[in-house]
């Protein structure tokens, strides 16, 4: 696993008349789970969009190690993304979906990887030909994670991954994130769930109106600490 730092320097992003992000400077380190918090419209998803290379910053730059984060294909292969929509084809089965993406990513011995991955996310006992659209939200999220991990990405991005999961599913996901962190992957997740953040995050970023309001790294956070940081950072000053 690489030890490259994902660094944002003075990044700004505008959409027409709206400034979504302003002067954002952050560093995400491998082996950490970074949680990006903030009220709605604070720019969390915009930030994730920039990190995924699907959109480009209007100002500033984003680097991975000493490489500029670009939208070119070798860079895209280093990124795994799990959104709140699963990002898979509902008409294909779990295995077919993974097979498609394995072939698009050029994964050698794809079938074995797929078997391992299905077992890991607990979808190996699902009926082989069942289309993904018949899956529950939890199963879809497992499939989405399998798809994002299939090509061993250096960076893992999550957009509110636990939003549609039941407590058991959320606990499972937290375990997976922990596992990825320990494997030395760089994990960034955008979330509203402060308690879940406390359970897994070692790096908390709070965005407010497109700016970094708090940026803290600790060995671990308690739920109360996260709540305190969040409230302090998002309090309206009069």
């Amino acid at each position: 696993m690489s030890d490259r730092v994902l660094r944002l320097e003075n990044v700004g992003k505008t959409f027409g008349r709206h400034r979504a992000l302003a002067e954002v400077s952050l560093a995400f380190v491998p082996g950490q789970v970074a949680a990006v918090l903030g009220p709605n419209g604070a720019g969390k998803s915009t930030l994730l969009g920039l990190l995924s290379t699907l959109s480009q910053p209007s100002r500033g730059r984003i680097t991975l190690g000493d490489e500029q984060l670009s939208r070119h294909s070798p860079m895209r292969a280093k990124i795994g993304y799990v959104g709140h929509e699963p990002g898979v084809y509902g008409d294909l089965s779990a295995r077919q979906n993974l097979r498609l993406f394995a072939s698009l990513y050029g994964i050698a011995n794809g079938e074995r990887c797929i078997d391992e991955m299905l077992a890991r996310v607990g979808l190996d006992s699902v009926r082989r030909e069942a289309a993904a659209r018949t899956f529950s939200r939890g199963m879809l999220q497992r499939l989405a994670l399998a798809r994002a991990l299939l090509h061993e990405p250096e960076i893992l991005l999550f957009d509110e991954p636990g939003a549609a999961l039941d407590p058991a599913g959320a606990a499972w996901l937290a375990g997976e994130l922990q596992h990825e962190r320990e494997a030395g992957r760089l994990v960034v997740l955008v979330t509203h769930d402060l308690a879940a953040t406390a359970a897994i995050a070692t790096h908390v970023v709070v965005l407010r109106r497109g700016r970094v309001a708090r940026d803290e790294t600790r060995a671990s956070f308690s739920a109360d600490e996260v709540r305190a940081i969040y409230q302090e950072a998002t309090r309206e000053k009069s």
């Binding site: 995924s52 290379t53 699907l54 294909s73 070798p74 895209r76 292969a77 990124i79 993304y81 959104g83 929509e85 699963p86 990002g87 898979v88 084809y89 509902g90 008409d91 993406f101 698009l104 990513y105 050029g106 993904a132 879809l140 798809r147």
Partner: peptide, 18 residues
Amino acid sequence: DRERESEAIRSLLLSPVP
């Protein structure tokens, strides 16, 4: 529509495929 449902298009655009 099949690409848009559950945002499969994003996975496709994120893959290293030209």
